[in-house]
């Protein structure tokens, strides 16, 4: 891909701050998504995922900070970038007065790499009534139409906000497959937000954990599984708990659980070798719950 050699980051956020009324949604977010990666953005409801995505794409003006898409400032994207960018919002409600067919035909005319056969095939595969007004379609059907729109433009940067929330298991697997293959083969960069962690574990190459408007963790998915672990310390050793833990929780019986990280030499903190201490590997969902709860 020419984009890769030119050295632009497909998605970049620097120091994003944003607040609605009194509530701070983003509190200094830095994020970079390298080319060809699938970044899973996880966070609880209300963690600021949608706001971050909107700010990243220049759909809203952040209070502070700066975002870039394929090397262009997010608020002033040119056609060069827009042609290669697709975004599917969380609760798609665009164009209720059009039918799925009309919407795809109309928007297809604006995208030079539009894949009309793909759009047609997916409409049938995902069983969408093509000639019914979208106002009459179920939320799941509308989300599928939007996903088809996003994928059919053959984007190089694909941004999906909670894409799988309203999909049935078959459509969900289809979507994940499509995302995975596009990223792996066409070099498409994908950012997708979700609170369903198991979706991420299949396709994501990186994850970023957004909690209360901040990125708490951003690394390769495989690394997260190997680099972090849960350490349980019996009551007599809690004073030896490592300082640099991602989360620490005192239990009722005086013991303590911590989420710890390997150091630069790949070793666990010394506390892990204390007698009675127990080290558990963590699945992504456990890690998420440990940190964000």
């Amino acid at each position: 891909m020419s984009e890769a050699s030119s050295g632009y980051l497909p998605l970049l956020a620097r120091g994003l701050w944003h607040s609605y009324a009194q509530h701070a949604a983003l509190r200094g977010v830095d994020l970079q998504v390298p080319q060809g990666r699938v970044l899973g953005l996880i966070g609880r409801n209300g963690a600021g995922k949608s706001t971050l995505i909107r700010a990243l794409l220049g759909l809203l003006v952040p209070n502070k900070g700066y975002a870039e898409v394929l090397g262009e400032p997010a608020l002033q994207l040119t056609d060069r970038v827009k042609e290669r960018l697709a975004y599917v919002p969380q609760q798609p409600e665009a164009f209720p007065w059009l039918t799925a067919e009309q919407m795809l035909t109309l928007l297809g005319r604006f995208f030079p790499h539009w894949d009309a056969p793909f759009a047609r095939e997916m409409l049938t595969r995902w069983q969408i009534p093509a000639t019914r007004p979208l106002a009459k379609c179920s939320p799941g059907e509308r989300q599928r139409v939007e996903l088809i729109r996003g994928l059919a433009s053959r984007p190089q940067v694909l941004v999906l906000d909670e894409p799988a929330a309203a999909l049935d298991p078959v459509a969900r697997r289809d979507l994940l497959r499509e995302v995975a293959l596009r990223a792996g083969e066409a070099g498409c960069t994908v950012l997708f937000s979700t609170h369903i962690v198991s979706d991420l574990e299949r396709v994501a190459s990186q994850i970023a954990l957004l909690h209360e408007g901040r990125v708490l963790l951003h690394c390769d998915l495989d690394d997260t599984k190997e680099r972090y672990a849960r350490l349980w310390l019996p009551p007599r050793h809690t004073s030896a708990a490592p300082v640099a833990a991602l989360s620490r929780r005192a239990q009722a019986d005086g013991s303590m659980t911590l989420v710890i990280e390997r150091d630069s030499h790949g070793e666990w903190p010394l506390a892990a070798q204390l007698p009675g201490a127990r080290l558990d590997t963590l699945a992504l969902e456990d890690l998420f719950v440990e940190i964000a709860a």
Binding site: L59, Q91, E93, A94, F110
Partner: peptide
């Protein structure tokens, strides 16, 4: 007012020209 509506499509639609 709708973040999930036409606005997002229009904002990212190529061919509408510069600012």
């Amino acid at each position: 007012r709708r973040p999930g509506g036409e606005l997002a499509v229009l904002a990212l639609l190529p061919g509408l020209g510069g600012r």
